[in-house]
Amino acid sequence: MNTQPPPRDPRARDHVLDHADMHDLVADLALPGGASMYVMSALETSRELIRHSSYRYEFATVAVTHSLFALERVLAERLATNEPLHALIERATGTGLITAELAAELDRGRMLRDRLGQGAESSAALRPLRAERSPTGTSSSARHSAGGSCCAASALAPTAGPRARTPTPSDR
């Protein structure tokens, strides 16, 4: 039995130096304590897929898709309506729930999700984004692109309780 981790995906080289850095990359993606179980599950799945995308780059695309599921649910709950995601994003922008800049980012993610779902795009064909290192050494553009909808869903979810801390490998 092979107990070694799988080899790193070379497309992830611009995001982090090694897999251990992936824990820092997702550290700010906190789970909202007051969110529905559906939202919590989708965000946790998204966060873990981002964490493991250094081994398989396509996991980042699946992570964005899952975080958009959570975002769609959160917006529907907050706006008390059951419309398609593009309409929810427009409505949330109109009510001031999200900024126009965030709406544009989320809409790009929504269009990617739609193209993936229609078979017009493949996560394997997507080119990795170049990461920009922040002063803390983490990859700010990677966090933004991979976790933008995840962060938005977390921020918009009800916060009746404390946000769950991101577990580290030593917690498991």
Score class of each variant (00 low, 15 high):
residue 106 L to H: 08
residue 76 A to L: 03
residue 154 S to W: 02
residue 33 G to C: 02
residue 142 A to H: 04
residue 95 T to E: 11
residue 65 T to G: 07
residue 46 S to T: 00
residue 151 C to G: 04
residue 108 R to M: 05
residue 94 G to D: 02
residue 21 D to I: 09
residue 99 T to V: 02
residue 135 P to T: 04
residue 49 L to Q: 10
residue 139 S to Y: 01
residue 43 L to G: 01
residue 131 A to E: 01
residue 144 H to E: 01
residue 65 T to H: 09
residue 7 P to F: 09
residue 44 E to W: 12
residue 125 A to T: 09
residue 151 C to E: 04
residue 22 M to D: 03
residue 134 S to W: 08
residue 83 E to V: 12
residue 161 G to H: 14
residue 150 C to L: 11
residue 89 I to K: 10
residue 133 R to Y: 02
residue 153 A to C: 13
residue 65 T to M: 06
residue 39 V to R: 12
residue 120 A to S: 09
residue 54 S to W: 12
residue 135 P to G: 03
residue 52 H to N: 07
residue 135 P to K: 06
residue 29 L to E: 02
residue 34 G to T: 09
residue 31 L to H: 07
residue 115 R to Y: 11
residue 13 R to A: 15
residue 69 F to M: 15
residue 68 L to A: 00
residue 52 H to R: 10
residue 33 G to R: 03
residue 85 L to R: 14
residue 11 R to G: 06
residue 151 C to R: 10
residue 5 P to D: 07
residue 63 A to F: 12
residue 74 V to K: 05
residue 38 Y to D: 08
residue 103 A to P: 10
residue 116 L to C: 07
residue 76 A to Y: 02
residue 124 A to I: 13
residue 106 L to D: 03
residue 50 I to F: 02
residue 118 Q to W: 09
residue 113 R to N: 12
residue 136 T to I: 06
residue 148 G to L: 04
residue 47 R to C: 01
residue 52 H to M: 04
residue 65 T to D: 13
residue 165 R to A: 14
residue 148 G to I: 03
residue 112 L to G: 03
residue 157 A to G: 09
residue 161 G to T: 15
residue 43 L to D: 01
residue 152 A to V: 04
residue 120 A to N: 11
residue 28 D to W: 10
residue 40 M to C: 05
residue 123 S to G: 15
residue 94 G to N: 09
residue 155 A to I: 11
residue 120 A to K: 13
residue 107 D to F: 09
residue 123 S to H: 11
residue 7 P to L: 13
residue 30 A to F: 12
residue 15 H to E: 02
residue 9 D to G: 01
residue 140 S to H: 01
residue 87 A to T: 13
residue 11 R to A: 07
residue 47 R to N: 03
residue 157 A to W: 06
